[in-house]
Design a protein around this nucleic acid. Structure first.
Lengths: 345, 345
DNA sequence: CTGAAAGCGCTTACAG
DNA sequence: CTGAAAGCGCTTACAG
C-alpha cells in the first residue's frame, strides 16, 4: 500500500480511501491510484486491516467429525447464515476428544474469531469461560455443555421419543424397547425421558429390560417394537432381525438426521430432524449476540418429524392378525395411511 | 502485552520471550511475567503475530458443498494432514457457482492463507493466477481446472471404468451401457474414456445408444448391464429396474465414494474410492509446496476398488442360464466368489 | 540475561 | 479533497 501510494504520488490514506471506496476522492486521483494498484498487482491484506479494526468477521465451527454426514450438514447450515453476513468459517473436528476440543478452541480464540459454534465433547468447558468473558460469542450445538450457562441449539429428543412411542402405542404396541448404547449419554438420556413420559401417559408399565436392549438381546426379548437411539443401532437392529428372519415381528423406529430414513432403506420409520436447520439455528443464536443481544442464554430446539418412506413388506398372515389401528392420541400426527408394518404385539 | 510488561515491570520484549518460551529469561523474571499474565488474563493475539511473521499457518478448503457426504469426507482428509502440521482451515462451499468460488477464494487470499485446496467449478480460474504468483500454494481436487497448470489430486475414473467394464465382460456381458447425465462433465468424459478403452480391448462394438441412456430408456434398451456415473443415477437405475420388476435382468454398477455401496444397499456392485484419501493426497501436494517443492505441477490419482457387499438376490432361473465365468482378463481382479447377480446377457 | 527502537500492513482521528 | 502522525498487538534485529 505504501508502494502504491508512492507510485501514484499520493498519501497512504488516499490509497486506503480508494481501496475502501470511501467518498471524497477526485476521479483523477482515484484513477491514478487504481492504475498503480493494477501495475503493482496490489491486494489489500485483510488480516492487517482486521488487526486495526478489532473484528475478524470470522467464526469457528468445531464438531465431532467434519467427515460425518450429520456434522457436515450442521456445518453447512452454519455456513448458510455466515455467508449472508459475509463471515468466514474456521472448521475443525474433535473426534470427541476433550483435549483436542480445547486445543482447537483456544487456537481459534487466539486468532480472535468473533464467535464460536461448538458441538461439545464430554469434557468440561471451564477453559472457555475467560474467552467468553473476553467477548467471544459462544453457542453450543447438538449437545449442551455441562455446568455452563450459554446459548444452546438442540434437537428435541424428548419430543421425538414421545411422538415415536405414542405412535407405536396407537398402532397397538404395548411392549416397546429402547436400543441405544450408553444410557448416560445426553442423547440416550433425553430419548429415554421421552420414552418414559409416553409410556406413562398411556398407562403402560415398563419392564426395565426393555430399555436395556442390545442387538443380541433383542432376539430374546418380548418387545414388539424398538426405538433406536443412533444410526448405527438402527442399522444393527434391522440387520439382526433380518438375519434371524424376524423382520416382520418387531417394528424398528430410528432416530437421526433426515438422510437416515433414506440410508436405512424402504419401509422403515424414522424420527428425523434436519441437521442443517440445527446449524442455522445455532448460527442465528450466535449472530444475535454479535448483533448486540446481551440477554440471558437461550435454548432453541429443532423438532423431529416422523418419516416413513417407501413400500412396505409385511407377511399377509401378520397383517391378518393386526387390528385396525385405534384413534391416534392427540399428540400423534395421524398418518395418511396406517403403516401395516406395525403389526399387533 | 504492553500492560503485562508494565505490570511485571519488564520490557515488551521480555514478555514476548516468556510467551514464546524463548530461552534467556531468569526464572524469577519469567514468574513475574507469568503472574502478570494470569492476573490480567492476557492471551496472545495470534493474528497480530502472524501479521509480523508473514505466515498465517492457515489453508483454505473450497468445495461444492460442505454438507455433501463426499465433499465432507474430502475436507476431513485435508484436515487430517493439516492438523499434523498445526494448520487451521477456512472452509466454504461454492454450490458449483463460479462467481461464489471466485468471491470465496479471493477473500481467503486477502486473509493471506498460505495455501488453497479447491474443488473447481466450471468457470475459468485466471483470477487465481496472480494469487498463485503472489505465493499462495494452490491444489485442485476431484476435478482439474481448465487451462491452468497446477497440482491436481484426482480420482482415477478411467481406470475405474476399465475395471468395471472388464469385470462385466468377464462375467459374460456384451451389451453394456453408461448412465451418467451430462456427457461433457469431467467425470462422465473420463468414465466414458475408460468404458471405450475396455470395450475396445475386448473387441466389442458399442452401440452409441448404450452410452446415451436415461433411466426411462434403460427399460427399452438391450443392455444387460449399466455403469452409473453418479450416486443419483445409480439409485435411479436401481429404482427404475425394481419398479419395473426387472432388477434381475440388468446388472447395475455404481461409481462413487465408499459409502455409496452401503447407501445403495445389499447386493450392489460399486467402483468405490475413498474421498478422505483424496483429501489427504491433495493436502500432501499442498504441503510439499509449502515445504519448498518448486518443481513442475504434479498429478496424483486415487484408485477406485470394486466393492460388492452383502447378500445376493437372484432368480434360480436366471442363475441356471448363466455360464460359468470365463478366465478373467489380466487387468481384472479375480473375485473370490463370482457374483451370481451378473447373469448371462 | 534484558531492553529500546523499528516495523508488519493497514485504519483512525485529526488537520489542513 | 488530501495528508502526516499515531497506533492495532505483536516480532525482528540490534544493543547493552
Amino acid at each position: 500500500m505504501k508502494d502504491v501510494a508512492y507510485q501514484a504520488g499520493v498519501a497512504l490514506k488516499t490509497v486506503s480511501r480508494v481501496v475502501n471506496g470511501e467518498p471524497g476522492v477526485t476521479p483523477e486521483t482515484a484513477n491514478r491510484v487504481l492504475g498503480a494498484i493494477q501495475e503493482l498487482g496490489f491486494r489489500r491484506n485483510d488480516s492487517a486491516r482486521l488487526l486495526r479494526t478489532g473484528r475478524t468477521t470470522t467464526i469457528g465451527f468445531i464438531s465431532d467429525n467434519w467427515g460425518d454426514r450429520e456434522h457436515a450438514a450442521l456445518g453447512r447450515g452454519v455456513e448458510e447464515v455466515a455467508r449472508e453476513r459475509g463471515f468466514l468459517i474456521f472448521a475443525g473436528s474433535t473426534d470427541r476428544d476433550p483435549a483436542r476440543e480445547k486445543q482447537l478452541a483456544l487456537s481459534l480464540c487466539a486468532r480472535r474469531i468473533d464467535g464460536l459454534i461448538i458441538v461439545p465433547t464430554q469434557g468440561d468447558h471451564d477453559y472457555l469461560l475467560s474467552e467468553i468473558e473476553a467477548g467471544i460469542a459462544t453457542v453450543f450445538a447438538l449437545r449442551p455443555p455441562l455446568r455452563l450457562a450459554a446459548d444452546v441449539a438442540l434437537v428435541d429428543e424428548r419430543g421425538a421419543a414421545r411422538t415415536a412411542i405414542a405412535d407405536l402405542i396407537a398402532h397397538g404396541h404395548r411392549r416397546i424397547g429402547y436400543l441405544g448404547g450408553d444410557r448416560a449419554s445426553y442423547r440416550s438420556a433425553e430419548l429415554l425421558h421421552g420414552y418414559d413420559a409416553a409410556m406413562a401417559a398411556a398407562g403402560l408399565a415398563v419392564d426395565e429390560a426393555w430399555t436395556r436392549l442390545t442387538p443380541e438381546r433383542l432376539l430374546n426379548s418380548t418387545v414388539t417394537a424398538v426405538l433406536c437411539g443412533s444410526r448405527e443401532y438402527a442399522a444393527l437392529a434391522l440387520r439382526t432381525l433380518a438375519t434371524a428372519g424376524r423382520s416382520r415381528e418387531v417394528s424398528v423406529v430410528g432416530f437421526g438426521d433426515f438422510d437416515l430414513a433414506e440410508y436405512l432403506g424402504l419401509g422403515v420409520t424414522v424420527m428425523a430432524y434436519d441437521s442443517a436447520e440445527l446449524g442455522r439455528a445455532a448460527a442465528d443464536l450466535l449472530f444475535a449476540r454479535l448483533d448486540g443481544y446481551t440477554g440471558p442464554p437461550r435454548q432453541v430446539h429443532v423438532k423431529a418429524r416422523l418419516v416413513s418412506i417407501g413400500s412396505v413388506d409385511v407377511s399377509p398372515a401378520h397383517l391378518a392378525r393386526a387390528p385396525s389401528p385405534g384413534a391416534p392420541s392427540p399428540d400423534v400426527p395421524s398418518p395418511d395411511v396406517p403403516s401395516p408394518r406395525r403389526g399387533q404385539p
